[in-house]
């Protein structure tokens, strides 16, 4: 293609898309934002050893200075808490500092912790399953999320957890796309000794799940964990497929799925917020699972998710073993994020 043509094409498509965009209702909202200089000041300086500093300060009743606040900022940003939430917290601290409310590091510690916990206030509702004999049909849990976050592994762990609570569990191999996803789920079924309903790769995901529900009801199973294929929240066709799965499940039982869990990889950055927003719109999430918290990633983006969507964080995943799953404890999570060594990481 010649330069001239390429150039024309760009102009053409640009103009066309701009026009179409306008015609079909998109509007421009280019509002430049003013950003607080405080955050900037914080970022230019030291970024070492918040934890050590804090440790040395705790109990020593030393006064707080500006550079410690900067370190806090760094800690939050490097934990993926995000620019907005970080700014909100540092603003609060700066205000408190100017009002001379932060006399020592213990007060400071409590203040940050409370700020972060405040954001998670609505996120600590644990998942409670109904009593087995109260259920006419199984409690349906649908697992959704982008590729590679750990949906199938989480199902394996949840199956064990629910069995330990005395529930009968069935797995539905709704990931009919990825090669060997069905086999992967079947392995988890064997490990837990629970039945797995599957049709094989390429089958219709919604119908596999529907089959599983029918079978579970017939067998008087308490909980059905339905796996789905990983999908990027930007893939319209795959998101419509998810909406279809939901509709089909509702056909079986209008109150189902009783729980739709978004699985979020703790390694994910700010994009997790887009993921949560999109999946919530399509699949009406009722909770979030944060996986891979045993690594160096802190999963700070869940503050942004909690703030925007107010969804409960139901579980956290901390390894590949069958027992490496715990209920979400805001205090533990916040302490880990702030670097405070906590012994009760997950129970």
């Amino acid at each position: 293609m010649t330069q001239k043509n390429a150039f024309f094409l760009v102009r053409w498509i640009r103009g066309l898309l701009a026009l179409f965009g306008r015609l079909f209702g998109a509007s421009s909202k280019a509002a430049p934002q003013d950003f607080d200089s405080k955050l900037e000041a914080g970022m230019g300086k030291s970024r070492s050893g918040f934890v050590e500093r804090l440790a040395s300060l705790v109990g020593a009743s030393k006064t707080i200075d500006r550079s410690l606040l900067d370190d806090i900022e760094t800690t939050l940003l490097t934990a993926d808490v995000g620019v907005d939430a970080t700014r909100q917290i540092t603003d609060e601290l700066t205000d408190a500092l100017s009002r001379k409310e932060l006399k020592d590091s213990a007060t400071l510690w409590a203040r940050i912790r409370n700020s972060l916990l405040g954001i998670l206030e609505n996120s600590q509702t644990p998942l409670s399953l109904p009593e087995s004999d109260e259920q006419p049909s199984p409690f349906v849990i649908l697992m959704v999320g982008v590729n590679g976050v750990g949906k199938t592994t989480t199902i394996g762990k949840l199956a064990k957890r629910f069995q330990d609570q005395g529930k009968s569990v069935m797995l539905a191999a709704g990931d009919t796309f990825r090669a060997a996803a069905v086999e992967q789920l079947k392995t988890w079924g064997e490990r837990n000794n629970v039945p797995v309903v599957a049709q094989g790769t390429g089958a219709d995901s919604a119908s596999v799940i529907f089959d599983a529900l029918s079978s579970a009801k017939a067998k008087g199973i308490d909980v059905v964990l339905a796996d789905t294929a990983g999908r990027l929240h930007t893939a319209d066709n795959l998101m419509s497929e998810l909406a279809k799965i939901r509709r089909v499940v509702q056909k079986f039982d209008p109150s189902a799925p009783h729980e739709t869990l978004l699985v979020v990889d703790a390694v994910t950055g700010q994009n997790a917020l887009n993921q949560a927003t999109e999946f919530h719109e399509t699949a009406k999430l009722s909770g979030v699972v944060v996986t891979k918290l045993d690594g160096t990633a802190k999963g700070g983006v869940i503050f942004a998710i909690a703030k925007r969507l107010g969804l409960p964080i139901r579980f956290v995943g901390v390894g590949e073993g069958i027992d490496d799953l715990g209920e979400f404890k805001p205090e533990t999570f916040v302490d880990a994020l702030l670097g405070k060594v906590s012994e009760e990481s997950v129970q």
């Binding site: 490097t78 934990a79 590679g148 700010q270 994009n271 997790a272 993921q275 160096t296 990633a297 802190k298």
Partner: peptide, 15 residues
């Protein structure tokens, strides 16, 4: 590496 990775990319890549 996942393009959606956040700040941890620095730690992981280094390791």
């Amino acid at each position: 590496v996942d393009s959606m990775t956040g700040q941890d990319a620095a730690n992981t890549a280094k390791a």
